[in-house]
Amino acid sequence: MHVRPSIATLAVIVMASVAWSCVAHAEARAGKRGDADAGARIFTQCKGCHEVGQGAQDRIGPHLNGIFGRKVAAHDGFWYSQSMTRAGHDGLIWTAKTLDAYVENPRALISKTRMSYGGMPNPQDRADLLAFLRMFSDDPANIPEAAPTVQGADHDISPDTRALVGDAELGEYLSSACVTCHQIDGSVQGVPSITRWPTEDFVVAMHAYKSGLRLHPVMQMMARRLSDEEIAGLAAYFKDLD
């Protein structure tokens, strides 16, 4: 399974011991470290579509060698969704954090992703999975964090926020600031359509801009000034437009 158990791995181990205290600190907040062996078993959930390791090829999804530190949708020759291509143009990079968020709930990071995978709510499972995937990203220069393993954290919004029932009248007022760019009839021209979305997809997308997980500067700015109630209101309003 190990593709290149190389100098890279050794370097990472050395760096890991240097960085140990901060890893331990992070661990206290975010749960346990990932276990690559456990991750190899969890990867069976991805295997139907993705290959990784020596000779891995693109299948339904792109192969995942060298994924850490790579730009989103940067794999030559693979046909990505528009949504994912756009995130790549925005400069989104696959890091422990963005991968963790994508695996947790793919549509939170990339709304119209073609990856039909429901998500992995358990942070420990994700930490294990990423520890496994990281073994196939062998250039330490591309790996932003020092530890050989990563911890899962909750990027997804809390159940309370998710359960908020939006006030569509408030949403209608706030929507006037959106329809300058997002056309109200749902047509797409340089700016994606946001009408008639499932509420949940809308809400998680807005929170991903608000938290900075998604990169687009206009949308980060628009989302940062919205409260949870206001986001719920917008989701309710845009859902029922005809």
């Binding site: 756009r86 790549g88 143009h89 925005d90 400069g91 006037s176 329809v179 300058t180 760019c181 997002h182 056309q183 109200i184 009839d185 047509s187 797409v188 021209q189 340089g190 700016v191 206009v218």
Partner: peptide, 23 residues
């Protein structure tokens, strides 16, 4: 910035033009 991002920014402005005129 990358050429791709600059192109996406221009395309976005065209979307904005259509949006603000409709609004």
């Amino acid at each position: 910035e990358s050429a791709e991002l600059r192109k996406a920014t221009y395309e976005e402005s065209e979307g904005w033009y259509a949006g603000i005129v409709a609004d």
